[in-house]
């Protein structure tokens, strides 16, 4: 399903993942669609990065050594300046009920690994479509469907 390559033009995204390769895959896809991507390989670094650059949304792995995705989320939600930024969780092995747990904890939604480059961007945009800031995206996505 072809999606316009400039769909994320002007969007700032922070990706937090301890796995360098996984981080690179996500980054490459996001960059491919025009996003400005900043990355962190540790939870705490990621939180600081988010506080500095105020991205439009965050993609964060759940299982990381040291500070994990759940703790990252708590820190971001505790901070007034970052609490409204949507966080998409990444998880390697989805268990039944994980989605409910993640959403219950405050994640905007979640995507399971492996990331599928063919559908990743659509999956992501679908998850973000109900965020008010992303209203313009909605039109773009609908346009993409029509193509």
């Amino acid at each position: 399903m072809p999606v316009a390559r400039n769909i994320l033009n002007g969007w700032r995204v922070v990706v937090i993942d301890d796995e360098a390769d996984s981080l690179e895959v996500a980054t490459r896809i996001l960059v491919y669609y025009g996003a400005h991507v900043e990355t962190a390989q540790e939870g705490l670094t990621g939180v600081k990065l988010v506080q500095q650059s105020r991205p439009h949304f965050i993609v964060c792995d759940l299982s990381m050594p040291g500070m994990d995705g759940w703790q990252v989320l708590r820190l971001l939600k505790d901070d007034q300046s970052t609490m409204t930024i949507p966080v998409i969780a990444l998880t390697a092995h989805a268990m039944p009920g994980d989605r409910d747990r993640a959403v219950g904890a405050g994640f905007h939604n979640y995507l399971s690994k492996p990331l599928k480059p063919a559908t990743f961007i659509m999956d992501l945009l679908k998850l973000l479509i109900d965020v008010p800031d992303f209203e313009p995206l909605k039109h773009e996505i609908e346009k993409s469907y029509e193509v």
């Binding site: 796995e19 390769d21 996984s22 895959v25 996500a26 490459r28 896809i29 491919y32 390697a92 092995h93 690994k113 492996p114 990331l115 599928k116 480059p117 063919a118």
Partner: peptide, 20 residues
């Protein structure tokens, strides 16, 4: 086992999609 495999699949997907 899945972590490296996920990375491999990610990269192969990127290549297949022409993103690289």
């Amino acid at each position: 086992l899945r972590t490296p495999l996920n990375a491999m699949l990610g990269f192969s997907g990127i290549l297949m999609e022409g993103m690289g």
